[in-house]
Structure formats: structure tokens, C-alpha cells
Design a protein around this nucleic acid. Structure first.
Length: 426
DNA sequence: TCTGGGGTCCTAGGACCC
DNA sequence: TCTGGGGTCCTAGGACCC
């Protein structure tokens, strides 16, 4: 048995914790650059503001309904997420943090308890400890728990909890769930299924398995198995090492100069290097990409992507920045207004083992001479930034002045920045 | 004017090996 | 006329998730 705990309208709920005046009012949170809606309160959904829709196309609705609009404040949401997960850890023996606002709990052996009481108590505890409202779905597989969670959210009379513990209750529930709302069925597969007259989760569960395997491949076949109560997706207790780490941003306004792009790329690279070090990982491949806006006129578009194989896997900001600048030099075309750029590191290995050369046949071990020194330098850099704030100590090439993002409606960093808290009280 | 960011898995096809 | 069987690795592209 699995439970899925999902925070309601998570980013909006985070803003409401620190600003209770937002309760019962329409509230939205925007993506980076204040672009699209990425979270909406129930009141905002009722007005017709759609997930992922650009804010600038909805200005009239926002104004007419006096909607509270916030720029994304990810440090705040990340911190609130950690608080929710920490509370859940005290309530279940094993759990898998699935996303910033979702967590699977292992409820095997909970059969002798009253699941409804347990779920209700869990909701209450999370709300009391963190201020975040959650919904809970319970089922025999992760996919059924997901479906149950959806029903708990949609059907207000359920009080935020839906339990599909038996085969019969699960099958009845599948009758009222459309295929496009099943976890693992996206828009493409949903369109295909509708074309073949499969409209409900129940019809999908009952479809011929070989047809599903053929058209939706192994991942779709697993979804079907799961809907039928056969668990194929176990709880992932340890987070596997990431296979790739990416830092990319759209720019608030177009960036054209090689110099400014260089600053941005250096900044993204240092973020990637930091994430690698935090995971105790090293990367052997580094990719840089530059895009013009996909909404620009055809002749003004350019997309450049290029990958560099490092001689040794590394997590040193300095080593990675050197490679990134070489890539930028080869990718850069003058005369374009760039909208987005990014850095991706891959070929990731454990930082604790010896650094084995990526390409060279002979000089695999020992490490390059300055490696030890570089590691020490990075340790110091991380220590300084951890104490005084990210970006306090950085390379000269890492500079955000030329390509700022738009963040016009940013709430204070209530939980992660002293100066913001002092400001509120003053 | 203004359209996010960060991931994973799977398949197909082309290259190679014996 | 007739042309094997069993693999690996890499990349690009497409699907999905939040």
C-alpha cells in the first residue's frame, strides 16, 4: 500500500503562510522572468487562469479580479518543502520525495490501522507544523495512489483524503477518471487512446495488453499494470546520482554581445559546478547552448548546442568555466538577440573515486597536478558562500549585471534571508 | 513589449565488434 | 538463385514527469 501526499497549490500556499491576507483570494505565482502561471489558487483557477499560460495574455483578467501576482521565490519554496518532508519523515517508516511538493509513503503493514484516521492525522500534523495544506491519496500501487490523490483534491466532500485500498473501490474510481489524467499518460498518448475509443482509466486498464505494449511501449504497459493493481514502480528509497545537471535561463531582455553571454555562461557553469559538488559528483561532459526566441521571426532565429569532453572529470568551477568559454566562442554568432542560454553537465561519476581520464590513453592516474589545490579552493569557496550567501565569492567572469531576469513581484525570502525578515518587522 | 526550468526513460537507427 | 547470429555503444528524437 502506498500513500501520496501532495501539497495543495504549493507555491501559492507558501506565499499564504507568510501573508494570510491572501487566503480565499485569487493568487498566482509566475515562472522565472514573470512569464507563465506555474501555480494558481482555487479562486484563480475558477476565474479561468490556465496552468502554463503567459501572464501577459491575461492582464485584463488579472486586473478585473484583483488577482495577487507573485514572481517565483524558489529559495522560499525549497525551504518550505524541506519542512513538509521533515514532518512526513516522522510519520512514516519509509518515504520517497518525488518532487518539491509531493511525497510517496510506504504503508505496507499499515493494514491493521485505520487508514482514514492515519491520513487525517497526517494532514493535520503537516498543516500545524508548516502551515501547508496537503491532500492524501492511498492505493495498492503508486499510480492508484496518484489517482486517489487527484480525487481527494477534486472532490471537496472527501476532506482532502481518498482511499482506494480495495480492488473494487479502485476499479470504480477508474470509471470516472479520464485517460489524460492518469499519471504517465501525456497529451500525445491521450490523443492516441481517444482515437481508439479509450476514454476512461477503466477502459485503458481493460485494453489488450499487447496493444498497449505496442503503441505506448514499456512505460505505458507499466502504467496499465499499475492501474490493475500490480505494482511495478517501487518506492525509491535512495535518490540515485543525477545523470545530468542543467542550469539555464531565459533573459529578461535580449542579450547580443559575446561579453554578456560570457558572463551568463560563466554564471550558469558555476551553478552547475556547485550542484555537482553538493551531490559529491564530477562531470566529464559539458554542453553549452544558446537560443534566440522561438517567437522571433524566422530569419532572426539561431540555436547552437555543443558538447566538450573534459580531459578529466571535474567539479571545479574554474575548470568547467574554461571549457564553457571555449564552447561559447565556437557557438557565438554576432547579429542575433539571444533569449535563452544554458549549461548542462553529464557523464557524471562519483567524486570520491580517482579521476580517470576521459579521453587520454596514458595519463589516467594520477590527477592533474593542480587538482588537489583546486578542490581545496572550491571547498573554501563553498564555505564562504554558505556562510555569507551564494555569490559572495565568485570568479570575475561570473557576473549577472548584463542579463538580469525580470522579477517584479518577488516576495521576501522569509525563511532564508535575515535581512528580508528584519525589513518586514521594520 | 511580454511565452519557465530541470529532469528521466525509451526507441530507432547507424556505427562498430566477433 | 543463394547472403548469419549475437552483441555494444552512441546519438537524436520523442515521450513523460513536476
Amino acid at each position: 500500500m502506498f500513500a501520496l501526499v501532495d501539497c495543495n497549490n504549493f507555491y501559492v500556499s507558501c506565499e499564504r503562510v507568510f501573508n494570510p491576507g491572501l487566503l480565499n483570494k485569487p493568487v498566482v505565482v509566475l515562472s522565472n522572468n514573470d512569464g507563465c502561471f506555474i501555480a494558481r489558487s482555487e479562486e484563480a483557477k475558477a476565474i479561468g487562469l490556465a496552468m502554463g499560460d503567459p501572464a501577459h495574455k491575461n492582464r485584463e483578467l488579472l486586473r478585473k479580479h484583483n488577482v495577487a501576482v507573485y514572481s517565483a521565490n524558489f529559495p522560499l519554496y525549497g525551504d518550505m518543502s524541506a519542512r513538509v518532508m521533515k514532518t512526513l519523515e516522522t510519520l512514516a517508516p519509509d518515504l520517497e520525495i518525488y518532487s518539491i511538493d509531493e511525497c510517496f509513503l510506504d504503508l505496507s503493514g499499515f493494514g491493521k490501522f485505520n487508514l482514514a484516521d492515519y491520513a487525517a492525522a497526517t494532514r493535520k500534523t503537516v498543516q500545524r507544523n508548516t502551515g501547508i495544506p496537503v491532500s492524501i491519496g492511498i492505493g495498492a500501487t503508486k499510480t492508484i495512489a496518484k489517482a486517489a490523490n487527484r480525487m481527494a483534491k477534486k472532490n471537496l466532500s472527501l476532506g482532502g483524503v481518498c482511499i482506494l485500498a480495495t480492488k473494487e473501490t479502485a476499479r470504480d474510481a477508474l470509471d470516472v477518471i479520464a485517460v489524460e489524467h492518469i499519471w504517465g499518460i501525456g497529451s500525445q498518448y491521450a490523443a492516441l487512446l481517444h482515437k481508439h475509443h479509450i476514454h476512461t482509466a477503466r477502459e485503458f486498464a481493460d485494453a489488450p495488453a499487447n496493444w498497449v505494449q505496442k503503441h505506448l511501449h514499456i512505460t505505458g504497459a507499466r502504467v496499465q499494470q499499475e492501474l490493475n493493481g500490480h505494482s511495478c514502480l517501487p518506492l525509491e528509497l535512495v535518490q540515485p546520482r543525477k545523470q545530468s545537471i542543467c542550469t539555464s535561463r531565459s533573459f529578461g531582455s535580449l542579450v547580443s554581445s559575446h561579453e554578456d553571454l560570457g558572463y551568463a555562461i560563466a554564471h550558469f557553469t558555476s551553478k552547475c559546478a556547485f550542484k555537482l559538488r553538493k551531490e559529491n559528483s564530477r562531470a566529464s561532459l559539458l554542453t553549452v547552448f544558446l537560443y534566440t526566441s522561438p517567437f522571433a521571426e524566422k530569419e532572426k532565429r539561431y540555436r547552437g548546442t555543443r558538447t566538450f569532453a573534459l580531459p578529466f572529470p571535474s567539479n571545479s568551477t574554474i575548470e568547467l568555466q574554461k571549457a564553457a568559454q571555449l564552447l561559447l566562442d565556437s557557438l557565438y554568432r554576432s547579429g542575433y538577440g539571444y533569449k535563452k542560454a544554458g549549461v548542462l553537465v553529464s557523464g557524471i561519476t562519483d567524486a570520491k573515486g580517482p579521476a580517470v581520464a576521459t579521453l587520454s590513453l596514458f595519463d589516467s592516474d594520477p590527477l592533474p597536478q593542480n587538482e588537489k589545490q583546486a578542490m581545496k579552493l572550491m571547498e573554501t569557496l563553498d564555505a564562504v558562500n554558505s556562510r555569507f550567501g551564494q555569490g559572495t565569492l565568485r570568479t570575475a567572469s561570473d557576473n549577472i549585471s548584463g542579463w538580469k531576469q525580470r522579477q517584479e513581484k518577488l516576495s521576501p525570502h522569509y525563511t532564508t534571508r535575515w535581512s528580508d525578515i528584519i525589513e518586514i518587522h521594520a
